[in-house]
Design a protein around this nucleic acid. Structure first.
Lengths: 232, 232
DNA sequence: ACAATGCTTCGGCTACCATCGAAGCATGAA
DNA sequence: TTCATGCTTCGATGGTAGCCGAAGCATTGT
């Protein structure tokens, strides 16, 4: 009676069609809510809940609570790699998977989330801050580094004193609705968005109720200069 | 109704405990017979047959017929890599697999298979020949290259004329019983073994019925000089 | 030719697990 | 507070797939 290898357990988690659909839906690195994953897999929420509990127990996905929602993402790149490998094996025996991309126009580009910047540019901004060690992120907690403070003072005239608030944290990771990755919230996120408006880099769309944020031509340039990812 | 990704299909193949046991048993690159795999998985041969058919249809294993037996091996390194990845994911959630190594003493090292060399050294020899492009191997068919002929003439005084036979091929891949990888059979394999004996590099064990081949001290050195894998 | 071995196919049984309806919590909004 | 939304737990059902016994080919050896 040799000790069973749990390779079978992990594989069987991926082996169910519903769970496999969920996992492939998460492959782009973004997080999805439980009910969205249910719809993605074509099953009811209660069934999805059961599946997600198993995936979590198996260490394939990690939940993140945000209000009433429960966002799920792949735990790390290792999981994604294995899924990629499985997809590769599956591909050469015949089948290929076609994924649908995002369809929305400008709302995904930049919009207001409460009082801070969200959308593609918002995510890009936090990515840039993190990559250049201007902030440190551990899960949902973000803290400003010393270099970060200098950077804000120099380029955006934001001083630490402006950011203190009795109940609200300076930095907070907020899950982006369209990108499904984190952008920057908290008093700093709000202050930066306000500064962008004051500098005439961007403004909320005029149409009432719209959350779209329109960047000016020069604003876009300045933003890219500060937070560009080098690909542009 | 989106086209189903067959990632689930492949994963479900690995997801069954019996099949997972078979696959992990094949992870060392050696080939095993259907009944051996059945025993490895703790199931009856007819059940194993069903599993192996599925694994073959899924492109995870490849069969090779040899006499009454049917040897199975992993199709390629990609499959092994994915299995490795799955094992890695499984490992960090708790479980680890311990594999038993080979137990036999000298029979695995070197022995006679009909009239040619088998065992660790036999496999090592064919590996060396293939790696140095002295032979070309495609599945079970092996052919001697021009460099190979020169090599044989120079180091072992074997000329192509000695190898012709009305019914028997010059080269043939023979599945090694202990190593479960190919070694060299055919008239060339026999001629080389015969030459090793003539050169007093090796001799069949004296005990009657034994298939063990004993290498002399100098013989081992000479053999390693010609076919060593560089690791010694 | 006959027997033995290795593997496969067939048929029926059983057990597991995905699935959904209904009800129960939790969070946020009015 | 009360209502609505999102998610989970519970219980029951049904389909599927693993499993083995028996029989059928294929190959090898005598």
């Amino acid at each position: 009676m040799k000790s069973g290898p749990d390779i079978a357990l992990v594989a069987s988690l991926v082996g169910d069609p519903a769970r496999a659909n969920m996992l492939t839906a998460l492959m782009n690195g973004r997080a999805l809510t439980a009910s969205e994953l249910a719809q993605e897999a074509g099953i009811t929420p209660q069934t999805a809940s059961s599946h997600l509990a198993k995936l979590e127990a198996g260490g394939l996905v990690e939940p993140e609570k945000q209000g009433r929602h429960r966002y799920y993402r792949l735990t790390d790149d290792d999981v994604a790699s294995v899924l990629e490998g499985l997809a590769g094996l599956a591909a050469r025996t015949g089948h290929m998977r076609v994924r649908t991309g995002p369809k929305d126009p400008a709302l995904r580009r930049a919009r207001i989330c409460y009082d801070h910047l969200a959308g593609d540019l918002g995510v890009q901004m936090l990515d840039s801050l993190r990559e250049r060690h201007l902030v440190r992120q551990k899960k949902q907690d973000i803290e400003l580094t010393a270099e970060g403070e200098r950077f804000l003072a120099k380029h955006l005239q934001i001083s630490p004193g402006m950011l203190t608030h009795p109940r609200r944290p300076v930095c907070k990771a907020c899950l982006d609705w369209s990108e499904r990755r984190h952008h920057l919230a908290g008093t700093l996120g709000a202050a930066m968005m306000q500064r962008f408006a004051e500098l005439k880099w961007a403004a909320r769309d005029a149409t009432p109720g719209s959350r779209v944020v329109n960047f000016t031509r020069t604003g876009e340039k300045q933003f890219a200069a500060l937070f560009g990812d080098g690909k542009h």
